[in-house]
Design a protein around this nucleic acid. Sequence first.
RNA 1: GCCGCCAUAGCUCAGUUGGUUAGAGCACCAGAUUGUGGAUCUGGGGGUCCCCCGUUCGAGCCGGGGUGGCGGUACCA
Length: 506
Amino acid sequence: MSKSESTSNETNSRVEARAPRGLADREAGELAATNRMLDVIRSVYELYGFEALETPAIEYTDALGKFLPDQDRPNEGVFSFQDDDEQWLSLRYDLTAPLARFVAQNFDRLPKPYRSFRCGPVFRNEKPGPGRFRQFMQFDADTVGSASPAADAEICMMAADALEKLGIARGDYVIKVNSRKVLDGVMQAIGLSGEDNAGRRLIVLRAIDKLDRLGPDGVRQLLGDGRKDESGDFTRGAGLSLQAIDTILSFSLGGQGGGAATVDLFGLLEKSEIGAQGAEELTLIENLARDAGYGPDRIRIDPSVVRGLEYYTGPVFEADLTFETRDEKGHPVRFGSVGGGGRYDGLVGRFRSENTPATGFSIGVSRLFAALKLVDSPIVTARPHVGPVVVLVLDRERLADYQRMVAQLRAAGVAAELYLGAAGMKAQMKYADRRNSPLVVIQGSDEKARGEIQIKDLVAGAKAAGEIATNEEWKAARPAQVSAPESELVERVMAALADRPAERRS
RNA sequence: GCCGCCAUAGCUCAGUUGGUUAGAGCACCAGAUUGUGGAUCUGGGGGUCCCCCGUUCGAGCCGGGGUGGCGGUACCA
């Protein structure tokens, strides 16, 4: 309101240059590193026989499965707007719901099982936090049309392969597997089955989900009367009996020790049919992974994994980085989850008369990227970005000559550009420096008269500059600069580029 | 959503019990150098002191309300 008032004021009509909160720009270095990372993931997925797919960033809101309130904009968590035909559209908040829409729409012509991967930005209209943005990238792979635990096992193995290919050492990550059916079974065991207990089940599941962050005591509070956090905020608990709390905790902590949780699991779930079925599926997945050579150091059953409470119907996965790192204050923290997924047998069925089983896995690209930087994976380490050769403009009336030199260089495959600004030579040198140019081409009237050009190596020149104390020396030395016949421009530049040491810092 | 902290130049921050024209460092631009990156020196641009209302002769400073940012927590399909 005060904004629009001040905009009407002529003297203060400047617009504040800023990205909306929770949204970030990404520059050349990060883009290049991210692309290298995505290429690795893509190659692993293709090796497994998955094919590429892209769907639009915008879907009909109802296709995303978001409940649409009567009148208000359905902006709770989802960016939405109305089309000119009054239909509600939304920016996708994940890649799974759009995939389900695509498969349902093209069901008859797609091979089943349909195995695809896709990568792109997703949007969430939520409060952003450190490392949490309102637009971020996900990389998904899914098998639609297979109910076999082999499909789930394969997804887990593929996730493990991808992480290792990216430079995360075996032992620094683990793919944790649990099952919604097993969780349901536990709920039954403590008497929380039935529709009227749905709300409490949700509270219980959320509490289990916080086990790694709050520890057993915090979860115990959340399962009981509730918990008050450091900021003084109170979270209402599930109000379970002490016995029920013990049951849940002993179950959820079962996987923390190692890989021997399965026995307990069956004992606990004897009474529950759905729980027993889930446990059996988990065992199958585990056996398939073991048979393929993936030990518990890579793929492991962990009863504390909850994830995506809404549409998962069976096994759920989570890729956890287990190595410790330090936050800004020096406290040791575990990096945590970089991806997750699971079986969602009901999603495609929302569009069709019959259900279609599906399972998939989603990587949080920027989170994984941050993790790779922490472990110094060579895939994402910043490489000195080498800018273009810059041809300086000394005689403005000879722009065409300079442009021709640039064109010659480009024709030979050398990245080159003409200085397009209006500033003098000193500023042009600074510009080239800032662009990380390997070298500049100089031809003023003197050189032109002699039919020559000057080639100046900026990296060697900067190095030489450190040893020069006075400006007079600096001027006289003209370090790392050679003249060459104009006719040899291209070959001399290419030779100079080839000559440069491989290890250069820009 | 809830709780807490914060808001002065592009960045990091000073700014006295409320007092004249709001400062520094860094960064940026230019000159010293007809045509050479660095260093040095000199100069320059850049501010609605987050916004509004109030108290006051007088507000960057005090009071109230808002907005925005940060941290925690909740939610996260």
